[in-house]
Design a binder for these strands. Sequence first.
DNA 1: AGCACGCCGACT
DNA 2: GTCGGCGTGCTC
Length: 802
Amino acid sequence: MIAEVIVDVAAYPIDRPFDYAVPIDWEHVMEPGLRVKVPFGPRKVAGYVTGIKEESELDHNKIKPIAEIIDLEPVLSAELLALSKWMATETIAYEIDALQVMLPAAMRAKYEKIMTVIKPEELDDAFRSFLGNRQQVTLKALQDANLLNEVKKYNKLGIVEIDTAIQQKTKMKKVRMIHVPDAKQLETALEEAHPNAKKQQELLRWLLLHPTESIEASKILDESGVTATVLKSLVDKEIVEQSQVEVYRELESPKMQDSGKPEQLTDEQQVALSAIEQSSNKNIQETFLLHGITGSGKTEVYLQAIDHVLKQGKEAIVLVPEIALTPQMTARFKGRFGELVAVLHSGLSAGEKYDEWRRIHRGEVKVAIGARSAVFAPFSNLGLLILDEEHETTYKQEESPRYHARDVAIWRANYYQCPVILGSATPSLESYARASKGVYSLLTLSKRAKNQALPSVEVVDMREELKAGNRSMFSLALAEGIRERLVRKEQIVLLLNKRGFSSFVLCRDCGTVVECPNCDISLTYHRASESLKCHYCGHEERVPSECPECTSEHIRFFGTGTQKAQEELYKLVPEARVIRMDIDTTNTKGAHERLLYDFGEGKADILLGTQMIAKGLDFPRITLVGVLAADTSLHLADFRAAEKTFQLLTQVSGRAGRDQLPGEVVIQTYDPEHYAIELSKTQNYVPFYEMEMDRRRQLGYPPYYYVTVVQFSHEDVLKAADYAHKGTEFIAERLSQGSVIIGPTAAAISRLNNRYRYQSLIKYKHEPALIPVLQQLLKHYKTSWAKDGLVMSINREPTSIF
DNA sequence: AGCACGCCGACT
DNA sequence: GTCGGCGTGCTC
């Protein structure tokens, strides 16, 4: 028997199955989807069995046997193996990367070189004294002790051996259990106990008082007050037995709870739910676009649709943007489905994620909620997949494999012939266009569930404010609104639209902006450390006291960060309690949730933050939302700038007035006539969609064309440009008539980490040659260009074209 | 990717 | 003479 194995080596010539012989004893357990350890050249690596066959086309003497089987059960089903293959092809990634991304990080192999002593008598004294009585030492430890050269010498002479140990990163958590086989034996033991063994007697009495068949050892020690030695002596005397039992790590239960009862649906919600249920009953793949304004109760539709498929004995996956994965959201699902829900969020440790994965794999839960990667939840009978806030760009992974969770969800739904729900108040143009063409089925929720009015939106022209002598960050209208809310003890959300715009240091005499020495990017000012940082490469330097160009002292930071906004806010309303949420205040584990929780509990009046606050907040006392600079995201060199701005403004406006109290929104801008801002006033998606589609058609951008970006980077600017031209020409010569190639041009960030970057944009409506051509290009690159220091990357349907 | 093999410069 | 630098080539 031959197993086809994809080995854990991400390199071009290795990206295919390798044949290995299956030892006869393992033939009956060998299955695709198992992880194995195999010899590969001079070393040993981990790999995945992707296929089984009787014969190999290769010479018998070339085939090596599998060294070890890692799993008892396959970790990847036939479905997921097929998915990985599809994903690798579509996104032009290594198959090994596509396989690895589907499993929790804890299951990725860890390699460690270990030295074993064979002939201890031939070691020199210094080496021997370092080893002590150890037979095996990691090479890492030997390197730290500066003994690497000796090890190499001994290895050549056969005095020591070096091999690679392959381990899983995180293990299953185990606890020690104590079993009482027979209570009578305890009594006998107590009678026969040595009179000096006071503690043992005490423990026996405790055990008799707490009759049980098995109990955690730690619990006995805690509650009986005896020490571990005492327990051990009972184990040694075989009065009790002990064993290691695998357990799941305990997860913190959410603080907020949901009633757990289905809510009464509005007519619109009912129509949507019925359509989904019917589709589900028919066992066909259908993708629904659930377009519901903020507060229209999309989540309730999800919950009841999930309930429907659970009753059919099927499973469901719910994807949400990481930032929306708040306790508030997850508590609602846990309240409804209780123990059947696994929540996969970034706050979990690697071990906890692994546990949740196993609970899904074993079929102990039926619903998985999580960010992007939860789309790979190892269910085997899926009945529904949901992407909430489907327009979010976080659904696209921006490193290899560059998959989009929406595409993966639809692929899986096709496999199981079940529905997909894409939900959003502001769908991506791609999805809405597909819904308009009938590829997706459109479901609309146009009214708020609790019949609240939409918030009133006021757009303030900041140029007028400036003319009127108001030089602060807050317009008169917003300042007034803030003061009113403080008096009425209502809450305020202030959004600082920082995308593509942060505080930088500028010389007021010569106009020089301090830039990163490695990247063509201005450095960002950080107040806490009084330093300038590059957000791309991590370079950090002190704030200069004079201009590096003209030595003027008139150099100071410019732009608007959240810290500066907080200071200005303090000047405006010193009595207000403010919670600031940005990268600086949310970088510790759980900080994001804690800040939101505090705000929900009313511990602050104002929540000030970046885009991360635009989603998922559902607090009844928020009645005012202020957007401090709405147009900063409009000036990005990106065809999606208007779409992103409209989405952000609509999402954040939806935070106001979600309960009984009416909401108000103030949008500050220097560009009030822009259609993305103008139309967000009425929060009316369809007119915006039509306007933006018009523009996309004129400019030939998605969704009218598909886009693929090929990027070339090199330390030498001339070589970067040269290869970019060669590569672009290569593609252009091979594409069909209808496709357009733009470039090469310097990337928006033309130098990053000391590498010069060029890119070309391929636009196409239908291009069957695309994948083959890109694969050919990749072959050229890997076989010759890469050796010359070129780095090339291919990104299909990028979320932005930087 | 990583590891071995192999062929040329500066050291005990 | 040998240690060790990194070019080249292969991995079932």
